[in-house]
Design a protein around this nucleic acid. Structure first.
Length: 804
RNA sequence: GGGCGCGUAGCUCAGCGGGAGAGCGCCCGCUUCACACGCGGGAGGUCGCUGGUUCGAUCCCAGCCGCGCCCACCA
């Protein structure tokens, strides 16, 4: 064994070995209790980023821990077809060839997408293998593989038959670039500098009229009313009167609606149901018409009269000029406000009324809300649990149709008479009239519609497979905050609706990793860090350790220091094992603690085991990493191994056998975090019959607990021993050694009894003062007072020993 | 506008009612037979500010200042 641990080669070797030996595999007929985690299916076109790496490290730590604890673990891999995102990639390729998707047609487009995926997609799981993620790679699924498509079709038909899927003309977010609707959750909001115009709408009967404020003057052409708040005293008398819309010179009513904000602008709102979501709601409530003057391409349409064909900006200018000429433009001001953009192409979103498919949420979300409130599913941290409930409560009906070509085409067919047939596979005839000339709905489903089925469909649903029976419901889902509403909540209601049970019991929301300088990681800022490089440079174990160490409930800065720490820990373990192995020949690994330091380290390991179990159960991975680092460096190496060196050098077989047994336990505790180095060391230990990855997790071992207290005080002086070049031999009477040997040595080594006495005197004074305080003695918890008394007694003893 | 969170050593962060901590960095000393990716020693902090609760507050409460994130249809 070399004196330096080098992860290169070692990690790849174990990854191959584990997989080849089938140790990642999960079997449905395994009688052990199941433990299931589905890796959130990454975009099929994507590459591993730090979010994946952190997610993978967390999930794999949980999986490996449970595997060692005797669970039949399934870590499920797979990809998402990622509708818009993938279509984007292909459209960009086409654009480089000077073409659009319409030039090659739908069939060729879809074919091309598949061909491209075959050639270049699906690389993330190769990268996750290099992280050591112990997934059952045989079970890789895709949201558009044959079985999965059946699941999606079944889900749609199921919801349709429940009466929850409907088609309606409603206002949606239209992306002019993708020429598709988008859900609210697929938007981003950006501040832009705009101009707000104040425009007078004269009374139809003549006179001043009312002034409104708008940033989109082009939409004036589609105004159907002016609305004010019902309690707005200023406008009370106006309600019911008619005003004239500028430019088009159309008479429209003044109405009252609570959705109007009296404080904003002039408190009077021009109502444009065709081009604004709020106005749309107001319009529906008042039964107003919904004219549209802007088309799907974002330009003015034929209903815009002489402005048809213009961009909105051009049309707006013409409208403003018209108003200015007639003295209707009261003022204009610079105005900064947020606008919605497509999260993929950044195009400005056009609110348009469009015929779309919808999924009603009221019935679907009710059982999910119940499950969340009863905590059958719990989000971690707790603040996210509240957010998840709130999000679900307020979830509007779901726009599930997209006007894209890449995705699951809706299982909806129309006959020439306009009858609608909804079935899972191509029907022969119209369900209503028997007509055989059917055309299929062109729209595809929102990508998240299929993602919602991930925990079920990957296990074979809608078929009643053994996998589904064994591994559903699963256990944990690990994901990022922004995906709670898009994905997690939807998996919950889909699972409850289709199988009557939640898909998992815990959802871990991971922290966002920022660049080391706390800026957002982004390619354009050049602040991105590629986890694949980190892994190849520092090793998978160090990367895993580092990511888990910095993980928390808030946003965290990436830290190479934490990765370094992981590397150091691996090296330390490696050398600790060398010390023990080189100290003798035998292949004995056995607990034969003779001296208190041996009982002490066993007790420490057991105490850390308990802490680690608690922290893993609470998903506090940072704390786990911290505890194990301290255990390895401070307790195991700096103190315990140092103290048994004399015995090891003397060839004491018991000391070696016990040391190896203790080392084994430490390796086990660390394996979920740093699987490779621990397995590698394990393989060097004598007579290893089994792999560490499937070795049993340490049992509770309280046998040596009493050794902790007695030795820890002596440990306090350990530094002195080593510095003075003396290796202390600790007998049963540690206390005697401490008082008689350690103290004087410490003083001698420091050459500084006065300072030590001063320090102790300060402690004594402090403790005496507290204990003399009646209110402290009466009010503080009894064990706190007792601890203080013990401290005082100890300080006094030490003080006596020094000054006496 | 709403929600969440954060301000502790030069940097990154842990601790969260009774002794101010870790990693990295810095200074001093060690080629001690596991490890210089190491060992020992050390410097460095009014624990954002102001009040309150308490015998006692970095820790609980309120306000303020600063920073970040998420959500949002104020035209």
């Amino acid at each position: 064994m070399e004196p330096r641990y080098d992860p290169h080669g070692v990690e790849e070797r174990w990854q191959r070995t584990w997989e080849q030996e089938g140790l990642y595999n999960a079997e449905a007929d395994d009688p052990r209790p199941p433990y299931t985690i589905c890796f959130p299916p990454p975009n099929v076109t994507g590459e591993l980023h730090l979010g994946h790496a952190l997610n993978g490290s967390i999930q794999d730590a949980l999986i490996r821990w449970h595997r060692m604890r005797g669970f039949n673990t399934l870590f499920q891999p797979g990809y998402d077809h990622a509708g818009i995102s993938t279509q984007n990639v292909i459209e960009k390729q086409l654009a480089e060839e000077g073409k659009t998707r319409h030039d090659i047609g739908r069939e060729a487009f879809v074919e091309r997408t598949w061909a491209w995926l075959e050639a270049t997609g699906r690389t993330i799981f190769e990268q996750l293998r290099k992280l050591g993620a112990s997934m059952d790679y045989r079970r890789e699924r895709f949201t558009m593989d044959e079985g999965y498509i059946r699941a999606v079709m079944r889900f749609f038909v199921h919801l349709y038959e429940r009466g929850w899927i409907y088609r309606d003309n409603r206002i949606i977010n239209w992306c002019p670039f993708h020429e598709s609707s988008l859900s609210d959750l697929e938007l981003i909001h950006d501040d832009v500098d705009d101009t707000i115009f104040y425009i007078g709408y004269p009374f139809a009967a003549g006179g001043e009229g009312v002034t409104i404020a708008t940033v989109r003057p082009a939409t004036i052409l589609a105004d159907v009313a002016v609305a004010v708040h019902p309690d707005d005293e200023r406008y009370r008398d106006l309600v019911g009167r008619e005003v004239v819309v500028p430019y088009v010179e159309r008479r429209v009513p003044v109405i009252a609606d609570e959705r109007v904000e009296p404080e904003f602008g002039t408190g009077a709102l021009k109502v444009t149901p065709g081009h604004d979501p709020t106005d749309f709601e107001i319009g529906r409530a008042h039964g107003l018409p919904e004219p549209a003057v802007i088309g799907p391409d974002g330009r003015m349409n034929e209903r815009a009269g002489d402005l048809a064909g213009l961009t909105q900006e051009e049309a707006g200018e013409r409208v403003i000029a018209w108003c200015r000429e007639r003295g209707l433009l009261e003022k204009q001001e610079p105005y900064r406000h947020a606008v919605a953009r497509c999260e993929r192409c950044k195009s400005r979103i056009e609110p348009l009324i469009s015929l779309q498919w919808w999924c009603a949420m009221d019935e679907l979300k009710r059982p999910a809300l119940e499950a969340l409130r009863e905590r059958r599913v719990v989000y971690h941290p707790e603040s996210q649990h509240r957010f998840a409930i709130e999000s679900l409560e307020t979830a509007p009906d779901w726009n599930i149709s997209r006007q894209l070509w890449w995705g699951h085409q809706l299982p909806v067919w129309y006959c020439p008479d306009g009858h609608v047939t909804v079935v899972e596979t191509d029907p022969d005839a119209c369900g209503d009239c028997g007509a055989t000339e059917l055309t299929r709905e062109e729209d595809v489903l929102d990508t998240w519609f299929s993602s919602a089925l991930w925990p079920l469909a990957t296990l074979g649903w809608p078929d009643g497979t053994p996998e589904l029976r064994t591994f559903y419901p699963g256990d944990v889902s690990v994901t990022a905050r922004e995906i709670i509403r898009l994905w997690e909540n939807r998996m919950i209601f889909a699972g409850l609706e289709l199988l009557g049970d939640v898909p998992f019991t815990d959802v871990i929301i991971t922290s966002t990793i920022l660049a080391p300088d706390k800026r957002r990681m982004s390619k354009s800022l050049g602040t991105g860090i590629d986890p694949r490089e980190v892994i190849s440079q520092h090793g998978a174990d160090a990367t895993r350790y580092g990511l888990l160490k910095i993980s928390s409930t808030q946003d965290v800065a990436f830290s190479y220091g934490a990765i370094e720490e992981g590397r150091k820990l691996a090296n330390k373990l490696w050398n600790a094992s060398r010390l023990l192995l080189q100290a003798g020949e035998g292949d004995e690994v056995a607990l034969r603690p003779r001296d208190v330091e041996e009982r002490w380290i066993l007790a420490r390991i057991d105490s850390v085991r308990a802490t680690v179990e608690e922290d893993l159960s609470a998903f506090d991975f940072s704390h786990v990493a911290h505890s194990l680092y301290r255990l390895t460096f401070d307790d195991f190496c700096d103190w315990y191994l140092e103290s048994i060196k004399p015995r090891l050098y003397a060839g004491d077989a018991d000391a070696r056998a016990t040391g190896l047994a203790a080392l084994e336990r430490v390796l086990k505790l660390l394996h979920p975090l740093m699987p490779h180095v621990t397995e590698e060391i394990w393989s060097h230990l004598p007579a290893r019959a089994t792999r560490l990855i499937v070795a049993p997790w340490p049992e509770a071992d309280p046998a040596h607990a009493d050794a902790i207290d007695s030795l820890e005080r002596v440990q306090d002086a350990a530094g002195i021993f080593r510095r003075s070049g003396v290796l202390v031999k600790l007998g049963d009477d540690e206390k005697r050694i401490f008082d008689a040997v350690v103290k004087p040595e410490r003083v001698a080594a420091n050459g500084n009894a006065a300072a030590e006495i001063e320090r102790l005197q300060k402690e004594v004074d402090r403790a005496e003062k507290m204990l003399a305080n009646d209110r402290f003695v009466q009010n503080a918890a009894p064990d706190v007072v007792e601890a203080e008394r013990e401290k005082l007694a100890r300080y006094r003893r030490e003080l006596d020993a020094l000054s006496g």
